[in-house]
């Protein structure tokens, strides 16, 4: 095998007590924590879903077809992310880079869509100051967007590491962190799509 086995604790992970990677335990613990984070934000939104303060209601505001397209984009990005990881696990670095670049690109499309949506809402007079509904909408979807942005930065980081030759096949579990995080961000969007967009606007169609 490679002559490059850095002699530091993290490289000795096959000696861990559970036989699992430190990185993966850490990311799953963190994602468990994130459930509480988004749980708080989503509960706030549910609590305030009718508090319009005389401003626009949810049904008057959201653009469901647009949001649906964004949902497809994010599902697609989860697939490319998973395929990227698979490629790295099999040692196909070129395919890995291509899939990761594609994932980052889809993520950017998502963020672009959100920027477009936010601008549009602001122009319609639905701003963070309008009502508790609007505040919780912007903070919840904003934090989700923030998570996507961090994900994109991490994907770019993976790309950089891979291009610098610092992401060998046997370190795929490092890339896996980002892919798991990305999957979680997609899961959160699944909930947001239903709870924030679909249910409160039912019956408008």
């Amino acid at each position: 095998m490679s002559a490059h086995v850095p002699a530091v604790p993290e490289a000795h992970e096959h000696h861990t007590s559970t036989g699992l990677s430190n990185n993966k335990i850490a990311i799953w613990a963190f994602l468990g924590s994130e459930c509480l984070f988004f749980g708080s934000l989503i509960s706030t939104y549910i609590l305030y879903h009718n508090q319009t303060n005389g401003g626009p209601t949810a049904a008057e505001t959201y653009n469901i077809p647009f949001t649906a397209i964004v949902s497809f984009v994010l599902v697609l990005s989860s697939m490319t992310a998973a395929l990227g990881l698979l490629a790295l696990q099999k040692g196909d670095h070129k395919a890995f880079r291509a899939w990761i670049a594609a994932t980052a690109l889809l993520g950017m499309i998502f963020i672009g869509g959100q920027a477009f949506e936010f601008t549009h809402l602001y122009e319609e007079g639905f701003t963070i100051q309008t009502s508790p509904l609007a505040s919780s909408f912007f903070v919840l979807t904003g934090f989700h967007g923030g998570h996507v942005t961090v994900g994109i930065l991490m994907l770019l980081g993976l790309l950089a590491m891979s291009l610098l030759g610092r992401l060998p096949q046997e370190d795929a579990h490092r890339a896996e962190l980002v892919i798991l995080y990305w999957g979680f961000v997609d899961i959160v969007w699944v909930i947001i799509f239903t709870v924030v967009y679909l249910i409160p606007t039912l019956g408008r169609g």
Binding site: K24, W28, L31, G32, E34, M79, F184, D186
Partner: peptide, 21 residues
């Protein structure tokens, strides 16, 4: 996509404990 069904139970439990809580 997050391949929990193929992976160690420990990961599933960590995630589920947060989710259920």
């Amino acid at each position: 996509f997050m391949h929990l069904r193929f992976d160690s139970r420990i990961f599933r439990r960590l995630f589920l404990s947060g989710l259920v809580l």
